[in-house]
Design a binder for these strands. Structure first.
Length: 114
DNA sequence: ACCATGACGTTTC
DNA sequence: CGAAACGCCATGG
């Protein structure tokens, strides 16, 4: 359980960017990591998502997928269909854990947010 | 301090 | 084109 102030800032950054993701849009761990200046720490972003469930503020982790647009972390949502349902609820088409039109709905924090 | 793991990404075979 | 290996970096044991 990371309780360090400095590291907590990094995690907070990830959560903050995730919440900035508009509905119907998705992004990748690497994009967030790169935006935070830790392009090589894409795994850490995923780790942060793992801790996101313990955050008081809800984090739309379902809008964050890997570079392939594949719902790799769906089993972390409890029910495997939950993540897909959430994305589908926002108008995102998902098939076989793969986001359709991923390139079109992709939201890059380093471009859109900049 | 060392080894193992992971919601990733890129390169190589 | 698909699968495997390697690299990166933080957290846990």
């Amino acid at each position: 359980m990371p309780e360090t102030n400095k590291n907590d800032n990094f995690f907070t950054r990830v959560y903050e960017v995730c919440r900035l993701i508009p509905e119907g849009r998705v992004t990748s761990y690497g994009a967030i990591a790169k935006h935070l200046g830790a392009a090589r720490s894409a795994r850490m972003v995923g780790w942060a998502m793992n801790n996101s469930h313990k955050q008081e503020i809800f984090v739309p982790a379902h809008r964050v997928v890997n570079r392939n647009g594949l719902l790799t972390g769906k089993h972390h949502f409890g029910e495997t269909t939950l993540m897909e349902q959430l994305l589908n609820s926002e108008g995102i088409e998902v098939e076989n854990n793969q986001i359709q039109n991923f390139k079109e709905i992709f939201w890059d924090p380093g471009v859109e947010l900049l």
